[in-house]
């Protein structure tokens, strides 16, 4: 599973990291630090919840994976 993040539009809600800090790393200011996430096997549910938690709706599931 792959996630794409429209990083320039992140406004620092940090709700994704509230679901999983490991999956959604933040920078020192509390904004998302990455533009793409390769979701490790078994973490798909967490990734989906994190993406859905974003009030700005900028975390997009690119590839559902297997």
């Amino acid at each position: 599973m792959k996630l794409r993040i429209d990083k320039a539009k992140c406004v620092g809600n940090a709700r994704c990291a509230a679901v999983s800090e490991e999956l959604f790393p933040l920078d020192e200011d509390g904004y998302i630090a990455v533009e793409q996430i390769d979701v490790p096997a078994g973490k798909e549910g967490l990734a989906r919840r994190g993406a859905r938690a974003c009030p700005e709706r900028i975390i997009i599931i690119e590839d559902e994976g297997q």
């Binding site: 940090a14 020192e28 200011d29």
Partner: peptide, 11 residues
């Protein structure tokens, strides 16, 4: 806003 973000970050 930039200088304020860090002091109010989740961390």
């Amino acid at each position: 806003r930039a200088p304020l973000n860090r002091v109010f970050s989740p961390k």
